[in-house]
Amino acid sequence: MNAIEINHLRRIFRAQIGVFNRSIKEVFAVDDISFEVQQGELFGLLGPNGAGKTTTVKMLTTLLIPSLGSARVGGFDVVKQANEVRKRIGFIFGGERGLYWRLSGDDNLRYFASLYGVDPEVSKKRIPYLMEMVGLKGRGNERVGGYSRGMKQRLHVARTLLHDPDILFLDEPTIGLDPVGAREFRNVILDLQSQKKTILLTTHYMFEADALSDRIAIINKGSVIALDTPSGLKKHVSDLSVVEVETFGASEIVIEKLRALPFVDALSVEDRDQKQMILIQTERGAEAVPDVISALEGQRVGRVIVREPTLEDAYVRLVGGGA
């Protein structure tokens, strides 16, 4: 049986525009998506901001009613059998909020255990176990308001596991964490994966999705544009190489000049403090470098590297970093 089944799911938001001449604008946040997640699978959902990832997660966690289509989680319909779904799932939305900051970590867990109807005898043993599992052993008596962001995120994981759910929804759980905190968090996810939990993970971090996911769906403008294993997705760009060029203060005109080169398949720019990293996907590989350098004539150029494409490059190509 599939843990999650989504059939032609749509979510339309209606926004009122104007004060006197009012009109209704319809936004398709999720537009006809369908996929299944198998039991015990770690399924990644990738996409740019506003692609519809969080809206999808909200519908699957019964927090938002779909406009059209259907979804089943743990074998239950998310609208008609919402309470049955809630008993079987745990979820985290990224960020620090969603905990009672005036309460201690243990008291937060105690309260949520009662909300999930966990037997007190069970929660008495489970709370210290979970606090240890997420690396908060010995900190349970402290007020959550004094926790670091990473500690709060980890307390969220403990909260979501209180009732031992089979299916977990982690919506950008590592957002805002420092590298060490994010790595520790990923270890927690791997630990959950080893416990055969079904996990739907949304993230912006490609290496995270690459390292953790069994399969990945890329969602853009409300629709699934690709669904495959990480290695399968990378095949989308197997014919390409990536030329990374470090520049200092390259203007938009220069970037557009590069984009217009006939051999450039896709181009993206990452700002890194004073410098920019221009990533060019091209079939020509190292042969493209002289033409790229000549297009950058007059610019201060640093390192130039030609490398194999990664999942991020596949993602850029799929969501439209195209030339």
Binding site: T62, R86, G98, F112, L115, G117, R159
Partner: peptide
């Protein structure tokens, strides 16, 4: 204000008691 509403409404708890 605490941002706990989604987590509260995402539980199967009896709303009357809450």
């Amino acid at each position: 204000d605490a941002g706990t509403l989604p987590y509260l409404f995402g539980t199967p708890a009896n709303r009357f008691m809450i």
